[in-house]
Amino acid sequence: MALYRVFIKGTNDKITLLQKFLNIVIAVALFLLFFFFSAKRLSINFDFSFLWTFRYRLIQGFATTVELSLVSLILSLLLGFLSAMANNSRILAISYFSKVYVQFFRGTPMIMQIYLFFYIVGTAWGVDNRFLAGVLILSLFEGAYIAEIIRGGIDSIEPTQLEAAKAVGLEAGQTLRLVVLPQIIKRTLPALAGQFASIIKDSSLLSLISVIELTQTIREISASNFAIFESYIFLGLLYLSLTFPISMYTRYLEGKFSYEN
């Protein structure tokens, strides 16, 4: 094998593990070099040692972000499912309520929703626990996206599938359990996993109302010691440590289900 074949993929070639490893290392190195030289131009000397001093706060912040994201995931799945059901409701007001909800939360920036809901709705109804308020706002926001994913899943069920279920003698409940739900889950799981990565990233915006999650923790630390670059580089790595495995898992699911559908 000629040496260049390690770096160039022929039309019908399979990429070997070694090839994959080598080339990923190169790509990541290029990426890092660019940052390194950018920092060089500004003659910044990185010093990450302070992170150790703040380790307990960082761990606490990281844990809060994970917690926030997990609770919001569950809540937004519920909201998304209800909204997708409501969207198909024969009671028109319910159907339109769901449509308005989805349009509003997908069509406006989250920062506006955070301020609006925290300062007006939250204050009016006495939700002064910032974590709780944060979870609610994040869930409402993500629920609108999940509603669309689930609605797409429902729409993708072909009528012949329901007719076949009827023909083999399944009852309505069995059709839902054995045919409709498995197909919706298979079709939407990759997108839902991807949405979980979005939830984790979007949760950072809750720092705007001082929920002490990861981003807010870093903001506070960097405001006290001015190590902005190091703080935010580290922040990025922490978010990547959460989103990267999810993104890999999403890829895996897409591959797994692409031919089963």
């Binding site: 072909e158 012949t160 599938q161 007719e163 076949a164 279920a165 023909a167 083999v168 003698g169 399944l170 069995q174 054995l178 045919v179 498995p182 197909q183 298979k186 089963e260 559908n261």
Partner: peptide
């Protein structure tokens, strides 16, 4: 038994599972 013009198999099940589903669940 009813056989449709096309697309009557359950998409999420393989051939064997398609045949088994009515046997087991119905």
């Amino acid at each position: 038994g009813f056989v449709f013009q096309a697309k009557g198999l359950f998409n999420h099940l393989n051939a064997q599972q398609n045949v088994m589903l009515p046997l087991v669940n119905v």
